[in-house]
Amino acid sequence: MFGAAGRETSGRILVEGVPVPARDPAASLKSGIALLTNDRLGEGILQSFTLIENICLPILSRFSGARGVLDFAEMKRTTEKNIQRLRVNAPGPSALARQLSGGNQQKVLFAKWLETKPKIFVMDEPTIGVDVGAKEEIRRIIDEIASAGVGVVLVTTELDELVLLCDRVLVMFRGAVIGELSGEAVNRERILHAAACGEIQAAAA
């Protein structure tokens, strides 16, 4: 997951104190990390797959018995539940992903990762390329996810999104953290200031 496409970097990842092997998306998923990439078309949605197939892809083994035969009825139920909960505008669970607008495809991806029951949900530019209405809805969904106790790591270049959603903001420049803000300090001016000047702010203002 992390470093799946790039080269080895420093640092390590712990989920509830347990180290997660690097460069192994299957293991990361198993330890409770979900990753929404910023490239919906290239690394997210499978256009020629149905919503059922897109959403159930990481959790296929949950629907297959000992002999690996899939329980389609259960897969459909899971998909319908998510379509309702995330208010996906789609003809039905068996619709192809390419029939949906960008915003609705993004919601399908949220459903896909939420169904993996993540402890940590990493989102890279979650509202990129979706229309204004869907943007609002997706931000609300992110808020709900965080309220439900999932640790959300939001990576974004949209200032408003940071101010609206984040409790704590780390400003990064060329791979290094150059500013940290939390609580009241999370506002446009302080974030821009940190980004421009790179000074390390004291936590809590």
């Binding site: 299957a26 990753l35 949605i45």
Partner: peptide
């Protein structure tokens, strides 16, 4: 890529 990110070997 999508398959790998979805935990498929």
């Amino acid at each position: 890529t999508v398959a790998i990110l979805s935990g498929i070997r």
